[in-house]
């Protein structure tokens, strides 16, 4: 429950701000000049705020849509990402957000229309090539949809821009809005998974693996394009059995022809993020695991990554054709 709403002075009368305020009538409303005054301050604890995050309603001025890192994509050479929101309602212990941001408050940039202007500039620049736009980098794409209404806003935008593809990456089961409308051929709803045991230990507040599969099945039934993101792969001594069981669980009921892409990627983080996360959670077993610093990125050692990726790939390809398989090879 949101107890405090910080609102940038410039957007206090914005219709979306007023709608969100109406959802939290008991929340204290605190006006600030810019969201950074609250969000970027030193001397605050991401960890403590995760137990009671506030919401900050703000206006974005730049960096609306950014090029995706090399190796991050599902078949296209033109990949971009954008985030209408910073921070996530879930609390996954491997998530880089804990290391990137000082605050765990949710920031919602209410000027959605400005995102569209930049999207259109990029689409025009690439002159009709297939371009992918990934949502869900700094937040979960669907988890707070009932509050933000962003997906409801952005889907018609992509409906009228068929050469542009949208991926909604999520761990949420908030698929009601999607189930209530016709599927769009250029939109993929991609669900992230780790094995049940790892999910229970590391993915706090996240719906169960089986609930997420049920949500996928609902979308599948209505004809939506789906994606699977086995990213990050987390090492345990029993990873082979755990991932085999996960793949079996996922592919037991999903139809392959509803899948647009399946990706795999090992756990990796920029070193400074890892330092910050370790400071917040020094007792976390994940951070005490077999991790190395390779060229400024913290991850498992190369041989282990190759072994895990190889094993998981071998078992994945028993279920899916190679042309929808995209290993994530992000490098520094």
């Amino acid at each position: 429950m949101i107890r405090h709403l910080y609102i940038e002075e410039a957007v206090t009368t914005h219709p979306r701000v007023q709608q969100i305020c109406e959802r939290y009538p008991k929340a204290a409303r605190i006006v600030c000049e810019r969201y950074g005054q609250v969000f970027n301050r030193k001397a605050q604890s991401f960890r403590l705020q995760k137990s009671q995050p506030s919401m900050i309603l703000a206006q974005k001025f730049d960096g609306f849509v950014l090029p995706a890192p090399p190796g991050y994509g599902v078949g296209s050479q033109c990949n971009y990402y954008f985030s209408h929101m910073l921070n996530c309602i879930y609390d996954c212990r491997y998530c880089f957000l804990q290391g990137m941001y000082r605050s765990a408050h949710y920031v919602v940039f209410v000027n959605y229309e400005d995102f569209v202007h930049v999207l259109d500039e990029i689409i025009t620049r690439h002159d009709g090539s297939n371009i992918w736009f990934f949502s869900g980098y700094d937040c979960d794409s669907l988890a707070l949809e009932p509050v933000t209404g962003f997906v409801d806003f952005i889907l018609p935008v992509f409906e009228s821009r068929p050469s542009a593809y949208l991926e909604l990456r999520t761990k949420s089961t908030q698929v009601r809005l999607l189930c209530a409308r016709e599927p769009l051929p250029n939109v993929v709803v991609a669900f992230s998974f780790t094995p049940e045991e790892i999910s229970l230990a590391l993915e706090h507040k996240v719906p169960s693996v089986s609930s997420r599969i049920e949500a996928m099945l609902q979308l599948q039934e209505r004809g939506w394009n789906l994606g699977l993101r086995f990213d990050p792969i987390i090492y345990t001594d029993a990873y082979r059995e755990q991932y085999e069981r996960l793949f079996c669980q996922v592919f037991d009921r999903l139809k392959i022809d509803s899948l647009r892409s399946v990706s795999l990627g090992a756990f990796r983080l920029p070193k400074q993020f890892h330092i910050n996360m370790l400071r917040s959670y020094p007792e976390e077993p994940l951070f005490a695991g077999p991790l190395n610093n390779i060229d400024g990125m913290i991850g498992y050692r190369k041989e282990l990554v190759a072994e895990m990726m190889g094993y998981c790939e071998e078992h994945l390809l028993k279920y899916i054709p190679r042309d929808i398989y995209f290993p994530c090879e992000v490098t520094t």
Binding site: R3, H4, Y6, A28, I30, C32, E33, Q37, V38, R41, Q44, S45, L48, Q49, S51, Q52, S54, S103
Partner: peptide, 16 residues
């Protein structure tokens, strides 16, 4: 201005 982060439920109201 400063914004003391509020993670505890205040005993009553909070205010500026």
């Amino acid at each position: 201005s400063w914004y003391p982060p509020q993670v505890l439920k205040p005993p009553g109201d909070s205010d500026s």
